[in-house]
Design a protein around this nucleic acid. Sequence first.
DNA 1: AATGTTAATGACAACCATTTTCATTTTTGC
DNA 2: GCAAAAATGAAAATGGTTGTCATTAACATT
Lengths: 127, 127
Amino acid sequence: MMITRTMNKSQIKLISTLERVGGFASAQELYQMLRRDGDGIGLTTVYRALQSLLDDKIVDVLRREDGEALYRLCGEAHHHHLVCRSCGSTVEIEGSSVEKWAEAVAQEHRFREVGHTVELFGLCSKC
Amino acid sequence: MMITRTMNKSQIKLISTLERVGGFASAQELYQMLRRDGDGIGLTTVYRALQSLLDDKIVDVLRREDGEALYRLCGEAHHHHLVCRSCGSTVEIEGSSVEKWAEAVAQEHRFREVGHTVELFGLCSKC
DNA sequence: AATGTTAATGACAACCATTTTCATTTTTGC
DNA sequence: GCAAAAATGAAAATGGTTGTCATTAACATT
Protein backbone atom coordinates (compact mmCIF):
# COMPACT_ATOMS: atom_id res chain seq x y z
CA MET A 1 0.00 0.00 0.00
CA MET A 2 1.18 3.43 -0.83
CA ILE A 3 0.44 6.54 1.11
CA THR A 4 -0.86 9.14 -1.26
CA ARG A 5 -0.55 12.60 0.11
CA THR A 6 -3.36 14.81 -0.95
CA MET A 7 -1.73 17.77 -2.55
CA ASN A 8 -4.07 20.48 -3.67
CA LYS A 9 -3.75 23.15 -6.31
CA SER A 10 -2.57 25.86 -3.96
CA GLN A 11 0.14 23.69 -2.51
CA ILE A 12 1.40 22.87 -5.97
CA LYS A 13 1.44 26.53 -6.92
CA LEU A 14 3.46 27.34 -3.84
CA ILE A 15 5.93 24.60 -4.49
CA SER A 16 6.62 25.81 -7.99
CA THR A 17 6.88 29.39 -6.81
CA LEU A 18 9.38 28.32 -4.20
CA GLU A 19 11.28 26.44 -6.86
CA ARG A 20 11.38 29.58 -8.94
CA VAL A 21 12.65 31.55 -5.98
CA GLY A 22 15.41 29.07 -5.37
CA GLY A 23 16.08 30.31 -1.88
CA PHE A 24 13.60 31.19 0.77
CA ALA A 25 10.72 33.62 0.84
CA SER A 26 8.12 34.92 3.24
CA ALA A 27 4.44 34.15 2.97
CA GLN A 28 3.76 37.73 1.98
CA GLU A 29 6.36 37.63 -0.76
CA LEU A 30 5.01 34.38 -2.13
CA TYR A 31 1.51 35.81 -2.07
CA GLN A 32 2.60 38.88 -4.02
CA MET A 33 4.50 36.84 -6.57
CA LEU A 34 1.43 34.76 -7.25
CA ARG A 35 -0.82 37.80 -7.49
CA ARG A 36 1.59 39.46 -9.90
CA ASP A 37 1.27 36.37 -12.08
CA GLY A 38 -2.45 36.96 -12.27
CA ASP A 39 -3.39 34.35 -9.74
CA GLY A 40 -6.40 35.25 -7.63
CA ILE A 41 -5.15 33.32 -4.65
CA GLY A 42 -5.90 34.71 -1.19
CA LEU A 43 -3.39 35.39 1.52
CA THR A 44 -5.20 32.99 3.84
CA THR A 45 -4.78 30.19 1.38
CA VAL A 46 -1.08 30.91 1.09
CA TYR A 47 -0.66 30.59 4.83
CA ARG A 48 -2.79 27.48 4.93
CA ALA A 49 -0.94 25.80 2.10
CA LEU A 50 2.41 26.62 3.66
CA GLN A 51 1.25 25.13 6.92
CA SER A 52 0.24 21.91 5.19
CA LEU A 53 3.55 21.74 3.36
CA LEU A 54 5.28 22.22 6.68
CA ASP A 55 3.28 19.42 8.25
CA ASP A 56 4.20 17.15 5.38
CA LYS A 57 7.79 18.25 5.74
CA ILE A 58 7.93 19.48 2.20
CA VAL A 59 9.00 22.93 3.22
CA ASP A 60 11.16 24.21 6.01
CA VAL A 61 10.73 27.37 8.00
CA LEU A 62 13.21 29.72 9.54
CA ARG A 63 12.94 33.17 11.05
CA ARG A 64 14.37 36.35 9.64
CA GLU A 65 16.05 38.56 12.22
CA ASP A 66 12.91 40.68 12.44
CA GLY A 67 10.82 37.64 13.25
CA GLU A 68 9.10 37.13 9.92
CA ALA A 69 8.82 33.51 8.85
CA LEU A 70 10.70 32.40 5.76
CA TYR A 71 9.86 29.25 3.86
CA ARG A 72 11.96 27.15 1.54
CA LEU A 73 11.71 23.77 -0.09
CA CYS A 74 13.41 21.16 2.02
CA GLY A 75 15.92 20.43 -0.63
CA GLU A 76 17.80 17.23 -0.95
CA ALA A 77 20.82 18.66 0.75
CA HIS A 78 20.13 20.26 4.06
CA HIS A 79 22.06 23.47 4.36
CA HIS A 80 22.25 26.79 6.15
CA HIS A 81 22.62 30.38 5.11
CA LEU A 82 24.89 33.32 5.47
CA VAL A 83 22.66 36.33 5.03
CA CYS A 84 23.68 39.94 4.54
CA ARG A 85 21.90 42.11 7.07
CA SER A 86 22.07 45.07 4.73
CA CYS A 87 21.31 43.93 1.18
CA GLY A 88 19.78 40.56 1.93
CA SER A 89 22.03 38.58 -0.37
CA THR A 90 22.49 35.05 0.83
CA VAL A 91 25.12 32.38 0.49
CA GLU A 92 24.24 28.76 0.93
CA ILE A 93 26.45 26.92 3.32
CA GLU A 94 26.78 23.31 4.12
CA GLY A 95 27.97 22.34 7.50
CA SER A 96 28.10 18.66 8.14
CA SER A 97 30.16 19.36 11.23
CA VAL A 98 27.31 21.35 12.69
CA GLU A 99 24.83 18.62 11.88
CA LYS A 100 26.89 16.09 13.73
CA TRP A 101 27.36 18.39 16.66
CA ALA A 102 23.62 19.03 16.92
CA GLU A 103 22.88 15.36 16.82
CA ALA A 104 25.40 14.58 19.51
CA VAL A 105 24.03 17.28 21.79
CA ALA A 106 20.50 16.01 21.31
CA GLN A 107 21.47 12.47 22.22
CA GLU A 108 23.49 13.56 25.20
CA HIS A 109 20.45 15.25 26.70
CA ARG A 110 17.99 12.59 25.54
CA PHE A 111 15.96 14.90 23.40
CA ARG A 112 13.97 13.42 20.55
CA GLU A 113 12.98 14.90 17.22
CA VAL A 114 15.53 17.61 17.45
CA GLY A 115 15.76 20.10 14.67
CA HIS A 116 18.15 22.95 14.57
CA THR A 117 18.30 26.53 13.47
CA VAL A 118 21.68 27.66 12.34
CA GLU A 119 21.85 30.92 10.47
CA LEU A 120 24.60 33.44 10.10
CA PHE A 121 23.90 37.12 9.70
CA GLY A 122 26.50 39.72 8.81
CA LEU A 123 27.59 42.30 6.29
CA CYS A 124 28.70 41.14 2.89
CA SER A 125 31.82 42.47 1.22
CA LYS A 126 29.83 44.99 -0.83
CA CYS A 127 27.96 46.51 2.07
CA MET B 1 39.25 58.97 30.05
CA MET B 2 36.55 56.49 30.73
CA ILE B 3 33.46 55.95 28.69
CA THR B 4 30.48 56.12 30.98
CA ARG B 5 27.46 54.50 29.53
CA THR B 6 24.30 56.22 30.55
CA MET B 7 22.13 53.57 32.06
CA ASN B 8 18.73 54.69 33.20
CA LYS B 9 16.36 53.33 35.81
CA SER B 10 14.33 51.23 33.42
CA GLN B 11 17.37 49.59 31.98
CA ILE B 12 18.60 48.71 35.44
CA LYS B 13 15.23 47.27 36.36
CA LEU B 14 15.26 45.11 33.29
CA ILE B 15 18.74 43.88 33.93
CA SER B 16 17.89 42.76 37.43
CA THR B 17 14.70 41.15 36.24
CA LEU B 18 16.64 39.27 33.63
CA GLU B 19 19.10 38.20 36.30
CA ARG B 20 16.23 36.91 38.36
CA VAL B 21 14.91 35.00 35.39
CA GLY B 22 18.25 33.39 34.79
CA GLY B 23 17.44 32.33 31.28
CA PHE B 24 15.64 34.28 28.63
CA ALA B 25 12.28 35.98 28.57
CA SER B 26 10.07 37.88 26.17
CA ALA B 27 9.38 41.59 26.46
CA GLN B 28 5.83 40.86 27.43
CA GLU B 29 6.88 38.48 30.19
CA LEU B 30 9.36 40.98 31.57
CA TYR B 31 6.70 43.65 31.51
CA GLN B 32 4.30 41.47 33.45
CA MET B 33 6.90 40.51 36.01
CA LEU B 34 7.62 44.15 36.70
CA ARG B 35 3.96 45.05 36.92
CA ARG B 36 3.35 42.19 39.33
CA ASP B 37 6.08 43.66 41.52
CA GLY B 38 4.09 46.87 41.67
CA ASP B 39 6.15 48.73 39.17
CA GLY B 40 4.20 51.19 37.04
CA ILE B 41 6.47 50.75 34.05
CA GLY B 42 4.89 50.92 30.61
CA LEU B 43 5.22 48.36 27.87
CA THR B 44 6.73 50.92 25.55
CA THR B 45 9.48 51.63 28.03
CA VAL B 46 10.23 47.95 28.35
CA TYR B 47 10.72 47.67 24.60
CA ARG B 48 12.79 50.82 24.49
CA ALA B 49 15.03 49.78 27.35
CA LEU B 50 15.55 46.36 25.80
CA GLN B 51 16.49 48.00 22.53
CA SER B 52 19.08 50.19 24.27
CA LEU B 53 20.50 47.20 26.09
CA LEU B 54 20.70 45.42 22.77
CA ASP B 55 22.54 48.36 21.21
CA ASP B 56 24.99 48.38 24.08
CA LYS B 57 25.35 44.64 23.71
CA ILE B 58 24.26 44.02 27.25
CA VAL B 59 21.50 41.70 26.20
CA ASP B 60 21.13 39.24 23.39
CA VAL B 61 18.06 38.41 21.41
CA LEU B 62 16.84 35.22 19.85
CA ARG B 63 13.55 34.16 18.36
CA ARG B 64 11.20 31.58 19.74
CA GLU B 65 9.81 29.19 17.16
CA ASP B 66 6.65 31.26 16.95
CA GLY B 67 8.65 34.38 16.14
CA GLU B 68 8.43 36.12 19.49
CA ALA B 69 11.66 37.80 20.56
CA LEU B 70 13.40 36.48 23.66
CA TYR B 71 15.99 38.48 25.55
CA ARG B 72 18.74 37.35 27.87
CA LEU B 73 21.75 38.87 29.50
CA CYS B 74 24.81 38.34 27.35
CA GLY B 75 26.57 36.27 29.89
CA GLU B 76 30.27 35.97 30.05
CA ALA B 77 30.18 32.68 28.26
CA HIS B 78 28.42 32.73 24.92
CA HIS B 79 26.24 29.68 24.63
CA HIS B 80 23.27 28.19 22.87
CA HIS B 81 20.11 26.41 23.89
CA LEU B 82 18.35 23.15 23.51
CA VAL B 83 14.70 23.96 24.01
CA CYS B 84 11.82 21.56 24.50
CA ARG B 85 9.10 22.32 22.02
CA SER B 86 6.47 20.98 24.36
CA CYS B 87 7.24 22.11 27.92
CA GLY B 88 9.70 24.87 27.18
CA SER B 89 12.45 23.60 29.43
CA THR B 90 15.85 24.59 28.19
CA VAL B 91 19.35 23.27 28.48
CA GLU B 92 22.30 25.56 28.03
CA ILE B 93 24.86 24.30 25.62
CA GLU B 94 28.28 25.47 24.81
CA GLY B 95 29.62 24.76 21.39
CA SER B 96 33.04 26.10 20.72
CA SER B 97 33.21 23.95 17.62
CA VAL B 98 30.22 25.78 16.22
CA GLU B 99 31.72 29.14 17.03
CA LYS B 100 34.86 28.30 15.13
CA TRP B 101 32.92 26.95 12.23
CA ALA B 102 30.83 30.11 12.00
CA GLU B 103 33.89 32.28 12.09
CA ALA B 104 35.60 30.31 9.37
CA VAL B 105 32.56 30.48 7.11
CA ALA B 106 32.29 34.24 7.62
CA GLN B 107 35.92 34.77 6.68
CA GLU B 108 35.71 32.51 3.69
CA HIS B 109 32.91 34.61 2.25
CA ARG B 110 34.37 37.91 3.37
CA PHE B 111 31.46 38.83 5.58
CA ARG B 112 32.03 41.22 8.45
CA GLU B 113 30.30 41.52 11.80
CA VAL B 114 28.85 38.09 11.53
CA GLY B 115 26.69 36.86 14.34
CA HIS B 116 25.04 33.51 14.43
CA THR B 117 21.82 31.95 15.56
CA VAL B 118 22.15 28.39 16.67
CA GLU B 119 19.26 26.92 18.54
CA LEU B 120 18.08 23.37 18.89
CA PHE B 121 14.43 22.51 19.35
CA GLY B 122 13.13 19.08 20.21
CA LEU B 123 11.21 17.01 22.73
CA CYS B 124 12.78 16.45 26.13
CA SER B 125 12.83 13.05 27.80
CA LYS B 126 9.72 13.85 29.88
CA CYS B 127 7.54 15.01 27.03
C1' DA C 1 14.81 77.40 45.72
C1' DA C 2 13.53 78.95 40.77
C1' DT C 3 14.54 78.24 35.99
C1' DG C 4 15.57 76.23 31.65
C1' DT C 5 17.16 72.27 29.03
C1' DT C 6 17.21 67.61 27.90
C1' DA C 7 16.21 62.79 28.51
C1' DA C 8 12.80 59.50 29.93
C1' DT C 9 8.21 58.00 30.37
C1' DG C 10 3.64 55.93 29.43
C1' DA C 11 -1.05 56.07 27.35
C1' DC C 12 -2.66 55.34 23.14
C1' DA C 13 -2.82 54.53 18.36
C1' DA C 14 -0.69 52.54 14.36
C1' DC C 15 1.57 48.60 12.06
C1' DC C 16 2.03 44.31 10.21
C1' DA C 17 2.46 39.31 10.06
C1' DT C 18 -0.44 35.72 11.12
C1' DT C 19 -4.87 33.35 12.49
C1' DT C 20 -9.86 32.87 12.86
C1' DT C 21 -14.34 33.08 11.18
C1' DC C 22 -17.72 32.16 8.06
C1' DA C 23 -20.24 32.13 3.95
C1' DT C 24 -19.40 30.54 -0.71
C1' DT C 25 -17.34 27.69 -4.24
C1' DT C 26 -14.94 23.67 -5.89
C1' DT C 27 -13.83 18.86 -5.72
C1' DT C 28 -14.86 14.21 -5.03
C1' DG C 29 -17.21 9.79 -4.44
C1' DC C 30 -21.24 7.56 -5.70
C1' DG D 1 -26.32 14.82 -11.36
C1' DC D 2 -26.02 15.23 -6.30
C1' DA D 3 -24.83 15.31 -1.71
C1' DA D 4 -20.86 15.41 1.46
C1' DA D 5 -16.41 17.01 2.27
C1' DA D 6 -12.60 19.91 1.31
C1' DA D 7 -10.83 24.23 -0.23
C1' DT D 8 -11.19 29.05 -0.81
C1' DG D 9 -11.01 34.09 0.07
C1' DA D 10 -12.83 38.40 2.19
C1' DA D 11 -12.95 40.48 6.22
C1' DA D 12 -12.26 40.79 11.01
C1' DA D 13 -9.60 39.52 15.01
C1' DT D 14 -5.19 38.72 17.34
C1' DG D 15 -0.92 39.82 19.29
C1' DG D 16 3.77 41.34 19.31
C1' DT D 17 6.14 45.42 18.30
C1' DT D 18 6.83 50.33 17.04
C1' DG D 19 5.56 55.32 16.51
C1' DT D 20 3.47 59.60 18.36
C1' DC D 21 3.15 63.04 21.51
C1' DA D 22 2.09 65.44 25.54
C1' DT D 23 3.68 65.06 30.30
C1' DT D 24 7.10 64.33 33.79
C1' DA D 25 11.61 63.50 35.95
C1' DA D 26 16.53 64.65 36.15
C1' DC D 27 19.92 67.76 36.31
C1' DA D 28 22.79 71.72 35.67
C1' DT D 29 22.93 76.91 36.17
C1' DT D 30 21.86 80.84 38.40
